[in-house]
Computed example of a mutant assay.
Amino acid sequence: MKIPFNKTYQTGDEEKFMLEAIRSGAICGNNQFCKKTIELMKQKYGFNEVFLVPSGTAALEMGAMLANISPGDEVILPSYTFSSTVNAVVIFGARPVFCEVDPVTMNMDPEKIEALITPKTKMLLPIDYAGLPCDIDKIMEIANRHNLIVMQDCAQSYGSVYKGKPCGTVPHIATFSFHETKNYSAGEGGALIVNVPEWVQRATFLQEKGTDRSLVINGMKNKYSWVDKGSSYLLSDCLAAMLYAQLLHEDEIRTKRAMLTEAYFDVFQKYHDRDVVGIFQPTAKQEINHHAFWVLFDTLEHRQEFMTKCKAKDVYAYIGYMPLHSSPYGLKLGYKPEDLPVTENIGNCIVRLPFYTGLADEGLEYTKGVMKQAMNEIYPL
């Protein structure tokens, strides 16, 4: 049996809705399925306003544009994240200021933020690693005290909840990804959440290539003009139809993925209790969406041994992110690996386990058995 790291899941409604979108003849952005999906998201989670975009990367870029990130600005973010997070500020000329992460959560450590704030700091950009919500209340408190914008990268945390508040509802701006590797997928897709009402109209201009076309569509003008910078940040209605099918089955998908979380805790909890590995540890204030499960090994050698043993049985785990600060471009910006030792160690020792919805239906017991055997051989009692 072969267990890949990721595999797409279909609910059975995708084809029907996508054909309906195609046959409607209106397949560009902000048509019927975009509107249905936005309304579903707002009703379920209480977002102020939702903009469906072509990717999580596009959402980050549109958010940075909305926040007026410009040359000379500084943005504080974790080094342990995907390149899209940092590229969203670098392409507008801002300097990324990398912050250490908390090894218990893999999220940006709020206790390390204030020491990095300077007069040039404009934004805090935390992420929710593996769907585990960051301490957004503490981050917002810091931001408000220093008059900073917060854009929360919720690429992995759609449906997660922190202290009773859905991820994406608290910061000024939030972004989601609906890539094929996420819990709910449009193949490629994303969303920008705008929680500052005064910013919503401008966001419509940015999404429509810097024009006020949205005012024409809403009957407020009879022709549109170029009024701002912008780009084509619109999700095709065909892909929105696919996403709508997925989100209608959100509870079913979450239930299946929760089975994976439970299974992996069954394998790894005793090794965490022995203090030889660190694992995903949600608290009572964090309701997770079951996006992923990670294991932090005590040494690089043990990580490699685990992955090799699993691969020999056709179970494919993944190494996780390479830290940005010690990547080639990070080095070009003047960072050194030793600047963030906690993050550097995590990059060397972390493993992401196979995690996809269909694994709950086929292959989970096999995967557990392979991993149990590997761990028993690496860490014998």
Score class of each variant (00 low, 15 high):
A130L: 10
G131Y: 07
G131A: 09
L132H: 08
D135R: 09
D137I: 09
K138D: 09
I139F: 11
E141V: 14
E141T: 13
H146N: 14
N147E: 11
N147V: 01
L148F: 08
I149Y: 09
M151P: 09
M151Y: 03
Q152I: 04
Q152L: 10
Q156I: 07
Q156G: 04
Q156T: 12
Y158P: 05
G159F: 09
S160N: 12
Y162Q: 14
K163C: 14
G164S: 12
C167K: 06
P171R: 00
I173L: 15
T175W: 02
F178G: 02
H179S: 15
T181L: 15
G187M: 11
E188Q: 15
E188C: 14
E188L: 15
A191T: 08
L192A: 04
I193T: 02
I193R: 02
V194Y: 05
V196T: 13
A203L: 04
A203H: 10
L206H: 06
L206Y: 11
L206S: 06
Q207G: 10
T211Q: 06
L215N: 03
V216Q: 01
V216G: 00
N218M: 11
K221D: 00
K221Q: 05
K221Y: 05
K221E: 01
N222V: 12
K223N: 03
W226N: 10
V227N: 03
V227R: 10
V227T: 14
V227S: 03
S231Q: 12
Y233G: 07
L234A: 13
D237K: 00
L239R: 13
A240I: 05
Y244V: 03
Y244M: 11
A245P: 06
Q246F: 01
Q246H: 10
L247M: 12
H249A: 15
H249Q: 13
E252N: 09
I253R: 09
I253A: 05
T255N: 07
T255E: 14
R257Q: 01
M259W: 00
T261R: 05
E262I: 05
D266M: 08
Q269V: 07
